[in-house]
Design a protein around this nucleic acid. Structure first.
Lengths: 296, 296
DNA sequence: CTGCATTATACTCTGAATGAGTATAAATCA
DNA sequence: TGATTTATACTCATTCAGAGTATAATGCAG
């Protein structure tokens, strides 16, 4: 810091890492490279007006889809990331899935990497992990408190990263098992290079939190959508089921959407009205608070 | 990004910028240099295990106070920051005020920079600015909506940065007036170099949001404290008054604090019980959700 | 073409949380 | 000793969130 001991280090390499998320067919998806083993990344290109502008331009070129929403996640430094002494800036971006032009790029479901975070069907996997973590924490009160708080009764869907870190600490992840005594069988879920899986966890947590108080879900939906599609998108992100009548009540009283006048047809059951988000929501994006029903 | 057009830029300079916050005598304070004109900053020193570790070490050396809580704010790049092509990583840190050993360092109240954000006594200043903004927005519906949403009825204390940016856009800030036609008188409040005032706004917003759902207030308090001191610290951060009985009720049902058995003495009025935060709160820091009563 | 399955939509009920106000207790100070 | 000041303890009304139930409108099987 200024006015302190001299340090004068050589300049560093700066990388960008992108977590691009879409929701397709009720499943959250993330764009990967190397057959799902890494997140797309590359060196910072100067000449852009801002970091976000640079990222948006790159993504729009690659996916031929407008990048609706971009948010900075975190900046990492040092050995944690890779061999190169450098800084990595990670971003969360919301799009709709489209064939990536990027060679070797592949959309994958994010629950392939974090199966225990999907509690829409069952919480069995999380419960099984909780049991193994309890065994690991036996006799250590602080550990027990953490296991209970993260995997116990009141499941909080935002704590993706702490849960991941706890599993790491307990040696239940392949990337961590190398550093511990062997404790197979490991937790299920795909591995990633460096700390990319950790970055994905950060992105999931951020999106789960954001979606509760900012109307960003709409970036992931088609222009017109049914209330069920909206609900299922929310459920996909949260990894939890929602009470349908209450969800609809909340959406209505938020005045986020308006009817288009049209409806679905050709499907079983009563046709659903098609909605779109109200123009004022777009205009005031980032101003209005929005409450969506997840965890209190 | 990898697998795309070549770019190969030269390495960049990486700087750290710190927003160190304390609450002293019911006032939020921030550590500055250059007589309040800049935030402490300096080049990234390699050799630290992480960015946060580097910052904590520096702060603890300078202030001889443990840095209770550190959080990354944002990473800026490009011309926005200064003449040097580089990247700046900003941090929010919570401490207690102590004489800074750093030469030229000075603690200042953060409402000296954002007077309209302090609504504990009166909202007159914000109302006056709202009137001037309304005049500026006249005839432009999108602008009117933003003015109303940010400065209007339902004041949301988290929107520090959007409000600051709106004032900039309207040419009411000295740092912005240079880019606009002259529109004095300007809004009150101290200026800062580069975009440091913007970074401070980001820090304020982040802390105001954080304090509602994570027990970080305690980093700003002495080990033992009265409920009134706790309330006044919250009010100082939020820039708003709180209903005393309801605040106490909420604190109690959160089970965050416990009685020490001792009480204040020597002051007017009935002595107040002294409390401390419960050990479990410390242990589960970052796990448990905490609700404090601000804006719904 | 009739009833059944399926999905959408509307409504009710209950308990918890929140906002606001009032009453009592225990100290200092004139 | 009583007035003032601050802490602490209740009460009440309203809103909001969770959970369940009832009705409407379509496709589909017989």
């Amino acid at each position: 810091m200024r006015d302190t001991a001299p340090m004068s280090d050589s300049p560093l390499q700066v990388d960008l890492i992108a977590v691009l998320v879409a929701v397709t067919g009720g499943e959250p998806r993330v764009l990967t490279i190397q057959n799902g083993f890494a997140l797309p990344s590359g060196p910072l290109q100067t000449g852009h007006r801002s970091l976000q502008a640079g990222l948006s331009a790159w993504v729009e070129r690659q996916t031929s889809h407008k990048l609706g929403y971009v948010e900075q996640l975190y900046t990492f430094a040092g050995q944690s990331l890779s061999e190169s002494r450098g800084v990595s800036i990670s971003y969360l971006g919301l799009t709709r899935e489209a064939p990536a032009h990027l060679s070797g790029a592949l959309w994958r479901g994010w629950y392939e990497y974090f199966p225990w975070e999907d509690q829409r069907q069952t919480a069995d996997l999380a419960a099984a992990l909780a049991a193994r973590l309890a065994a690991w924490a036996k006799g250590n009160q602080a550990r027990q408190a953490r296991v209970e708080g993260l995997f116990g009764a009141g499941w909080n869907e935002e704590l993706v990263l702490p849960r991941y870190e706890l599993l790491w600490e307990a040696g239940l992840l392949p990337e961590a098992a190398r550093h511990h005594q062997a404790t197979p069988p490991l937790a299920p879920g795909l591995e990633m290079t460096h700390d990319h899986r950790r970055i994905l966890a950060t992105a999931m947590a951020r999106l789960r939190a954001k979606v509760k108080y900012r109307p960003v879900v709409f970036e992931l939906l088609a222009q017109d959508f049914t209330l069920l599609e909206l609900q299922q998108t929310m459920e996909a992100i949260a990894g939890a089921r929602l009470h349908k009548p209450n969800f609809r009540r909340l959406i209505e009283q938020q005045e986020l959407v308006e009817e288009t006048g049209r409806a679905t047809q050709g499907q079983a059951g009563r046709p659903a009205k098609l909605f779109r988000f109200r123009p004022s929501v777009l205009a005031e994006r980032g101003i209005a608070g929005t409450k969506l029903p997840l965890t209190r």
